[in-house]
Nucleic acid binder design. Structure first.
Lengths: 282, 282
DNA sequence: GTCGATTACGTATTACGTAACAATT
DNA sequence: AATTGTTACGTAATACGTAATCGAC
């Protein structure tokens, strides 16, 4: 069989036209290429070049060979990538979610069940998540709607509800409930990466002034100033992560709750059965 | 990029299970394979084997890699075959015909028009010829019917008619015409490789006794004995290649003439235009 | 002791570089 | 003179072999 470096050099010659240019592109000397091409012809036992004085040119067969060789080399590269991807998937679990909260539940379970594996998380919209799971870019995804894909195993996961956290000095402080209409013109502090909730805000709270903060400490401080409203999810509140000097006032609206769905590929269900078992039961 | 010999050795290890067996199968020593596999792991920078004492085994990634490598190597082999086929087609013209006579016309024209190329001829039945032209196993074919293929350029070529050559001593010597019915029970000397004419004889002359001869000199001698009838085509007769002591008696039947069709692939017509020009005009 | 893999070391191959040369432009 | 390819020769890398060693049956 022909060694790879010979094919690489052949392709370089085809690409650059001359031995000099090909040699330069590969950081080797011209005589090296010259000999390699001779060796190729010797091994194949057919003419690949027409050699006039001072010029060497690929003949038809040589060009055909070089083009095929280029294809083969790209297939080889592709193969190596596949091997790396395969290996990575053996020691890493990629989890995608449309919002960050589900990670709070998922990550601890995954790291304890798959101690020897690394866990990668990423927040994306539902469409990308579903596409990603199909392509095995994700092994687990959390969406805000049922993907209803026959290749997926899907189960209802957790729910998350939004309320408003109101500072003492704010006129809403004594309200029992707050409607989306109330919120028009209000300033609202939110965390940068809230995934699907960002769309939710834009859809249900037109005319609101968002102040996004990309750092969790800065977020806490900004809320602590007591100058503006902020959203607080029941999950955050239950964990005690909200500002206790502010009052949590429920929203008076239908869609204040999102139901999350956890999915994996049916192929992989046996591998992640325990994950579903631990998370879905309660 | 990974050199081919490393992939070959990896595939051998996968196939034979142990380094010893793999080494033996490749006629190299175990330490050589051992080092190659280490080098592969080094270059890839991932684990491919689980090494217990006394045993080395491919892990999942290693097996995946080896399987992909085997695919790649077979693609490489396939590529080399393609290159050889391409090269061969550049310096050889393969011509197929359903009978030998068309070669008498074709070969001289081809060898003079394509002096630097070799010409390969082969007699086969129409179906194989058409299939062969599709697959470019033939560049030109002569069939006894119009292939009517939209990828082919086809032109009516020559015609060939059969008559009976009758020895002086034979009772048919004074007949004006001979019908297929007359031929029943007669002995008939024919050349071995007459292609489509063999089918023609079986179809139109049931109950005839064929004596096939595979050597042209032997054929002439056998006919010269004057013991049996033989077929003589107008082409052979016009060339003066028939036995002049015998009488050529026409057949009294419809299908005594075959019309030949010459075809090439439309793609290649520009290349063979001159061939058609020289052969079809008269 | 046998078998399979690794380690150590030596060798032969060979891929590559440098230098000189030949042949065009 | 500058550019391109080949030839000649030397060198460094390396693929492979032999022999010894380790560990498990």
């Amino acid at each position: 069989m022909i060694e790879t470096y010979l094919l690489e050099q052949l392709v370089a010659v085809r690409k650059h036209g001359t031995l000099v240019a090909a040699a330069e592109s590969m950081n080797i000397s011209q005589p090296a290429i010259s000999k390699s091409m001779k060796k190729l012809e010797d091994m194949m036992d057919i003419q690949l070049f027409v050699r006039t004085n001072r010029k060497i040119e690929l003949n038809k067969t040589g060009m055909f060979f070089a083009d095929r060789a280029a294809e083969l080399l790209s297939q080889e590269e592709n193969m190596l990538e596949q091997v790396y991807a395969y290996d990575r998937n053996l020691r890493n679990i990629s989890v995608g979610s449309c919002a960050p909260i589900p990670f709070w539940e998922l990550t601890p379970v995954l790291t304890s069940l798959f101690a020897e594996m690394s866990v990668t998380t990423r927040t994306e919209d539902n469409d990308h998540l579903i596409k990603g799971l199909k392509q095995n870019l994700y092994q687990l995804i959390v969406t805000s709607c049922d993907p209803k894909n026959s290749d997926f195993y899907t189960a209802k996961f957790i729910t998350e509800s939004m309320s408003v956290s109101v500072p003492k000095s704010h006129p809403f402080y004594n309200l029992e409930k707050i409607t989306p209409k109330d919120m028009q013109g209000q300033f609202l502090i939110v965390y940068n990466e809230i995934g699907i909730w960002e769309d939710w805000i834009h859809d249900h709270f037109p005319g609101i002034h968002l102040m996004t903060v990309s750092d969790t400490d800065a977020l806490r401080d900004a809320i602590g100033l007591g100058a503006a409203l902020s959203f607080v999810s029941d999950y955050v509140a239950n964990m005690g992560y909200h500002n206790k000097e502010q009052k949590i006032v429920p929203l008076d609206m239908e869609d204040k709750t999102i139901t999350y769905f956890l999915s994996c590929r049916k192929k992989d269900y046996s591998k992640y059965r325990k994950v579903f078992g631990r998370l879905i039961s309660r």
